[in-house]
Design a protein around this nucleic acid. Sequence first.
DNA 1: TATGGTGACTAAACCGGTTCAGAACACTGC
DNA 2: GCAGTGTTCTGAACCGGTTTAGTCACCATA
Lengths: 354, 354
Amino acid sequence: MAKQRATIMDVARAAGVSKGLVSFALNDRPGVSPETRDRILVIAEELGWRPSVRARSLSTDRSFAVGLVIARNPDVMSGDPFFPAFISGIESALAPAGQALVLSVVGSEEEEEASYRQLADHDRVDGVILTDLRRDDSRLALVSALGLSAITIGHPDVPSDIPSVTVNDTPGIVAAVEHLIDLGHRRIAHVAGPSRMLHGIRRSHSFMATMHAQGLDGGLVIETDFTAAGGARATELLLAVTDRPTAIVYSNDLMAIAGLGVATRSGLSVPRDLSLTGFDGSDIGAHIYPSLTTVTTEVPEWGRHAAELLLQVIVGDAVGNRELPAARLLIRESSGPVPILSSPHRGDPATLKE
Amino acid sequence: MAKQRATIMDVARAAGVSKGLVSFALNDRPGVSPETRDRILVIAEELGWRPSVRARSLSTDRSFAVGLVIARNPDVMSGDPFFPAFISGIESALAPAGQALVLSVVGSEEEEEASYRQLADHDRVDGVILTDLRRDDSRLALVSALGLSAITIGHPDVPSDIPSVTVNDTPGIVAAVEHLIDLGHRRIAHVAGPSRMLHGIRRSHSFMATMHAQGLDGGLVIETDFTAAGGARATELLLAVTDRPTAIVYSNDLMAIAGLGVATRSGLSVPRDLSLTGFDGSDIGAHIYPSLTTVTTEVPEWGRHAAELLLQVIVGDAVGNRELPAARLLIRESSGPVPILSSPHRGDPATLKE
DNA sequence: TATGGTGACTAAACCGGTTCAGAACACTGC
DNA sequence: GCAGTGTTCTGAACCGGTTTAGTCACCATA
């Protein structure tokens, strides 16, 4: 019923040549006379010929697809603005190149390895993009053992010949901390991501380094897990300490928004009593009240560059690392001058309601 | 260097049989004696044989993968809790079945069709999951023209032989409206998704029907686009009308959270002056202040059932539609008793700060 | 005129499975 | 003793490309 798609054999017959020659012509390889090449191309066009990715995969041992494995607690995933934007950037590089994205979402790091193995065992992809790098990340060895090409988002913490696409978080964090200091804040805390994760560590380090550089105590750091619940818990702890901080720098927007909830709930007005900054530049952060001062990067660009770089690695080009424009501070409403009282009293929820 | 993977030929040689027989044995087909079958299986196991998906694809004309095309403005995507959870549900059904998910994210509906065509032309997938159904959705005809198997999330509005997985939104919306009515609200507004989208329409209809059933005016409906910005704008409009509503039912959490921002910014206290409800049951909604009363469903279950159903359709099983447990109301803090004054004055921001 | 080289092209192998036609053999019934 | 019926298994075709070895005509050179 449905007219079958033309194969290379159909083109060969119509052109009166062998299918090998058609293959040469279509792949722009030498050994075909210009006239014949043109004739073949015209006929292929007329017949609406499209190469069969399946057949091509089998004979060239390539998949023409790249993989992305996301290992995250579903709670973090939802509400995390990173991946949708990142993936849409990846797509913008893959689609024009005729490549596909194979996505795998797993709930934990344990399932992650199995997922990479499955991608490799089933020949699903030619390479993978490694995100959320961890300390001494076992995936670096894994992908090379599996024979997968790979690139990483951010530099690994160990020597590796896997190219990376990096965005320097530091200027964003530095700017956030300096912005708060400019506003008069001195007791500034940091709610960090898991120290297993390199980008979590890097942001913490940037925070502490900036505090120290300004002669301030950078020790008020609480490590948590990037979830809203974690951000809320961390905020509760910070607000309970004597001489509580007047400002908190969060390692992502989700935790900052949860922190805002906790602060407001405990009767503090942001930014009057407490200043907050996030990290991600999420859309929702612009629409809450007060809107969230945050650090933003061009996430879709990460995705696009990551995919482009990976495609180069896959075809064997020698490539270097790519460094994207640094993260930058987006000042909105959640950060303001330090409260006048050096030791502000803990607000009472009732005062808000009155 | 790297030991090549064993092929079916290696197994055949080691077992002293033809490769055809090995294929039969490995696929549990008749015509192989029990002893031979066992011997072949043991040898295949010893050799660590894994079928080549590529070769199998070529000879069976199947991809062993399913596709998902997401056409959304990146701003809605990020912050939208739906897709991460949905995809993780899909994965939970695909991975054990040895199937892969090919994901495509496009920024607009225009690019959507090209994306489906590419999936089909490149033989990337055997079927697709259609989400965000629209009125008279052109994708129904498209996928059948492309020869792709498909299932839809939600019933199409036109007769179609494409099976669907549905979750009844209505009970959730009804419960939300009745909850507000129980709290004394009478002027209740609705911020709806695009009327092009069937789930947007369905939620609006449920809203209006419930209002009418209670003898109330269900006409205060503003259609917008599911984005935070859209939710904010709609809320501003609603708060500006004379006799402004005392409660607003939003069609998703993102818009509700943005609406909360607008309300708070304009000096209203939620839920004292205004009650809000969302839709999605997002994690972040639980951590803002006040936490968001919302309608929740088991989104990962949608994904899992969708993938399961699609796999059945692909192999040609006769399948029916699947109906999942209905959406249910999750009462949190953003909904409360109607303000005592029948016509509450528009609050002044200063009162909040004092 | 024999020799060699080159460009254009063909034929066939190959990737690793599935599937079909038929061979070989044992068993059954007459 | 022999046709008929299964069962088990082999060999080869096939999916649609890529790639290699080799053929052939043609031209330049010694």
